[in-house]
């Protein structure tokens, strides 16, 4: 019982620290705006909802990324999976737009999963290669320009409209979150992900089909990236080159800041949610301060390293 309590604490610590950091960001940002403009936009519900709406895209990407990181793998193919899904969805258009986009995500996830699980190629390099191939396919498909196709009305509705005063994108994010939480905590698949992430050999010996689990997680990641791509295309009314580039690093950062172990096997979805919120708020405070891109990158990197130094440290072990 005692050890269970300690264990719980070690998993809660990142969530608490990140939540505390969110408060710090809000307070510092508000002091800044009060000082310069005399207003406190960070605490107005409308502003927060608007920030969360743009945060929804990152949140959905991070949800998929978390499934893969829980296995101790990583999915670097997200930028162009997202872009490819958006481009294919807008190119097909009509009622088939959404299924097409999701299908792209499933296809990329399957390729990633097979490469990592069956060919046993390190996920880092294999997904990088897949990302590069997807980029090549899209550049070939579009001729290197932004495609002219428009997002369908349904995509517009999902990404940019409001329902009961709340942006629909937030509902989509919530739905994805519920699915992920149920998957991770209530299904055999979710338990298998944790087991495989902890020690794949042990999971295999206890009868888990670890390779299917890996393929499943990569498919989930692909579908999440595709969903985010479809939403993003709806939000900006069309797909464009490199639309996914800004999501990879923040998604990994959100998952890791939320306390998920980069080596796999440990992490809770609530942490990822807090991590995403932290990054979205940090971004919005930096843009209120009109911080140039240079400062943003430095602060971004420093926050990740700083938070990991507080709680992300590996315990010293010889097995490596």
């Amino acid at each position: 019982m005692q050890s269970a309590l300690l264990h719980l604490r070690s998993e809660d610590k990142p969530v608490l620290v990140s939540a505390g950091f969110i408060v710090v960001i809000l307070v510092l940002g508000t002091i800044y705006t009060l000082y310069t403009q005399g207003t406190a936009p960070l605490f107005s519900p409308n502003y927060l909802l608007q920030q969360l709406q743009t945060g929804a895209f990152l949140g959905i990407v991070a949800a998929g990324m978390m499934m893969v990181i829980l296995l101790g793998h990583i999915d670097l193919s997200i930028p162009w999976t997202l872009t490819a899904a958006a481009m294919m969805a807008t190119a097909v258009g009509g009622d088939l737009a959404l299924p097409t986009g999701i299908a792209v995500g499933i296809a990329v996830g399957l390729v990633n999963g097979i490469g990592v699980a069956y060919l046993r190629i390190p996920s880092m390099i294999f997904t990088l290669g897949v990302d590069s191939v997807m980029r090549g396919l899209m550049v070939w498909h579009t001729g290197g320009f932004a495609p002219q196709d428009q997002a369908t009305p349904l995509m517009r509705f999902l990404a940019a409209e409001k329902l009961f005063g709340v942006p629909v994108a937030i509902f989509v994010w919530a739905a994805v979150s519920v699915v992920i939480v149920l998957l991770l905590s209530r299904t055999a698949f979710g338990r298998s992900i944790y087991a495989t992430g902890n020690r794949e050999a042990a999971a295999y010996l206890s009868g888990i089909r670890t390779r299917w689990v890996i393929v499943g997680a990569f498919v989930a990641s692909g579908v999440c990236a595709a969903t985010a791509g479809i939403l993003l295309a709806g939000y900006s009314t069309k797909a464009y080159q490199g639309m996914g580039n800004a999501y990879l690093l923040p998604a990994i950062a959100a998952v890791v800041i939320g306390g998920t172990r980069i080596l796999g096997g440990q992490g809770r979805y609530i942490g990822t949610l807090v991590g995403v919120t932290l990054i979205v708020l940090l971004n919005s405070v930096l843009s209120i301060m009109q911080m140039p891109e240079a400062g943003r990158q430095v602060i971004y990197g420093s926050v990740i390293v700083g938070m990991l130094l507080v709680y992300g440290r590996d315990t010293r072990s010889l097995s490596g």
Binding site: I252, V256, Q297, V298, G301, S302, I304, V305, L308
Partner: peptide, 10 residues
């Protein structure tokens, strides 16, 4: 991996 991802941004 994650450390250099962050320092790369810096």
């Amino acid at each position: 991996i994650i450390a250099t991802l962050a320092t790369g941004a810096i």
